[in-house]
Design a protein around this nucleic acid. Structure first.
Lengths: 143, 143
DNA sequence: CACTATTTGCAACTTAGTTGCAATGGAGAT
DNA sequence: ATCTCCATTGCAACTAAGTTGCAAATAGTG
């Protein structure tokens, strides 16, 4: 993905284009798994980013619907962008997370309407507005 | 539920019967929603329990499969027991959590095999071993 | 270029949860 | 009932993730 496309995404979400935001978004766009604050810090590597700034950047992205947060089993946050095939991020309320028991990576992908409908009326009297499905197992790379 | 039944559950899970465990299990058994460490401390009230002991008690219960932990959106742990109709706890890998957007209570209930099957093969190459479904919405009491 | 609102960096703080260790106590054996 | 051993408990100090306040820097607009 070109640098200009990263900028375009930021502009589309009404965010000022800054070096940090570009760097962070770039990392997220090129990852197929959800990343923690520490993962992102590592990936950025050299030109170290202040931890507070990174938290704020991620929270801003999340508030604008550009990425979303997943709380892990060990009570950390993971952050992931969801891109449609055309590389434009979509904000999605209904999605699934697959957590690999072996490598502990978290994969994130949308869930079909068809799969959702089966769950929608689980219990009398509970009005379901959005949902997340967490799957634990073994990812293709670890099998 | 009688005090002797609480003891029986502990024994059944190979846990020594102690006053603290009895108290904590009693609180969990009588709650229809998942409780945080702080919730449990509050419910116990007077005869204050050391926070470390409570964490250890909850983790022990969790390891033995007597209760299970849910990570909340605000990165706290909630703890819940799952009872079958006959009031014997079941250790269940596949279950759903319903989080009320209004009162923020978390309800926990098993998911039918039928509902599960729809999700099991979401993505090629991912071997699903267990799953959790999170539903966000409005609980009956808040409608 | 100049101006303003937003973003960034630093230091200090908060809070959930953990670790180490000594004291206590449950429950099976005698 | 008492002894003994090992699991459990309580306390203090610690860790680590994430937040807050504030001053300095900077994007974007005219």
């Amino acid at each position: 993905m070109l640098q200009s496309e990263i900028s375009d995404i930021l502009k589309e979400f009404n965010l000022k284009v800054t070096p940090i935001r570009t760097t962070v978004l770039n990392v997220l766009v090129h990852s197929d798994v959800a990343l923690s604050h520490a993962d992102i810090t590592d990936k950025i590597g050299d030109e170290s980013v202040d931890k507070v700034t990174l938290y704020r950047t991620l929270n801003t992205f999340n508030e604008k619907g550009l990425i979303h947060k997943v709380a892990t089993e060990d009570r950390n946050w993971l952050y992931a962008i969801m891109l449609k095939s055309n590389k434009i991020p979509v904000s999605e309320h209904d999605h699934a997370h697959f957590i690999c028991n072996s490598c502990e990576k978290i994969f994130c992908f949308p869930v079909s309407q068809h799969t959702q409908s089966g769950i929608a009326s689980i219990k009398e009297g509970f009005k379901v507005l959005e949902q997340e499905i967490r799957l634990h197992g073994i990812c293709p790379a670890c099998q």
